[in-house]
């Protein structure tokens, strides 16, 4: 590579990085400034370092619904974790069943799971809401998390991982005396640990970032997630506490971004290998 094209590459990449980091910088900087000054359009590019405590203070702020920010973060975290763990466990088991066994209607089961790929929650939002209402799951944590647990993508990912486990590995385990559950626990789960980590990142981010479903199914402010809370905050016509909204947005953004950055290596591999 010639020095000249290197220089162009740096320029383009720096531009891209700026495109992403600048809004984030403004958000963080804005959080430390005076809300009414921001509302007048006097947002400064430099943080007010005396005001870093805002990120702490804002935790006890109440959103429009009445729930505090820390409570919303808690709900978001619990929901994201429940979806992530639920999805990993359920998909792991079902992928194991359809790849390592032959049972009646196996392919029917597989295709049943497979077609859910074509039904994102948004498409079936109205009827799913109706079903949830029938079960009395509106305004419950179960109603918030469980419908988002089932999906084909994770099952397909695990299936792909399982299909390339060499036959000899399974046979060696059988010769060593391992039964199906033992094989799952001792061989298969450790072997797919990296994929599970990747899936965890993807699903955690997916769960944390949900908007439409929580908006519908949880009207009780006790179940407000942080994402819902923030949209509610800027939804009003007269927002004065811009800095507090920004601080809350930083807190809302931090957990999933940290998860992605800390687990970047597995996440990128898992995402691209599984084709979504």
């Amino acid at each position: 590579m010639s020095p000249r094209t290197d220089w162009v590459a740096h320029l383009v990449l720096c531009g891209g990085v700026a495109l992403f980091l600048l809004p984030l910088w403004l958000l963080m900087v804005g959080a430390t400034q005076d809300g009414s000054a921001i509302a007048r359009g006097e947002l400064s590019f430099l943080p007010d370092l005396r005001n870093l405590g805002i990120f702490w203070e804002v935790l006890t702020d109440k959103g429009p619904g009445g729930a505090t920010i820390w409570h919303m973060l808690l709900v978001s975290g619990a929901m994201a974790l429940a979806i992530a763990f639920g999805k990993i466990v359920i998909s792991l088991l079902s992928a194991y069943a359809v790849t390592f066994f032959r049972f009646p209607l196996r392919m029917v089961c597989f295709w049943t799971i497979f077609i859910t790929l074509m039904l994102p929650v948004e498409v079936r939002i109205v009827p799913t809401y109706a079903v949830m209402a029938n079960f009395g799951l509106i305004n419950s944590f179960t109603g918030l998390a469980v419908p988002l647990i089932a999906s084909a993508t994770a099952t397909l990912l695990f299936r792909q991982v399982f299909l390339v486990v060499p036959d000899e590995m399974v046979e060696a385990a059988r010769m060593d005396g391992a039964g199906p559950l033992r094989f799952l626990r001792d061989i298969l789960i450790p072997l797919s640990a990296a994929n599970m980590a990747a899936l965890f990142v993807i699903v955690f981010v997916y769960g944390w970032n949900q908007y439409l479903w929580p908006l519908l199914v949880a009207t009780d402010p006790k179940l407000d997630t942080i994402v819902i809370g923030i949209v509610k905050m800027i939804g009003g016509d007269t927002v004065t506490d811009w800095n507090r909204v920004m601080a809350a947005a930083v807190l809302a953004l931090l957990p999933p971004v940290l998860v992605v950055l800390l687990m970047q290596r597995w996440f990128v591999k898992g995402l691209t290998e599984g084709d979504k």
Partner: peptide, 24 residues
Amino acid sequence: TIFAGWVLPVCLVAPQLLLTFFFF
């Protein structure tokens, strides 16, 4: 290479099938 039996796999796949049925 597969494992024998059908009770265990049906139990393993059941949770996902139930969720799929009720929510999809």
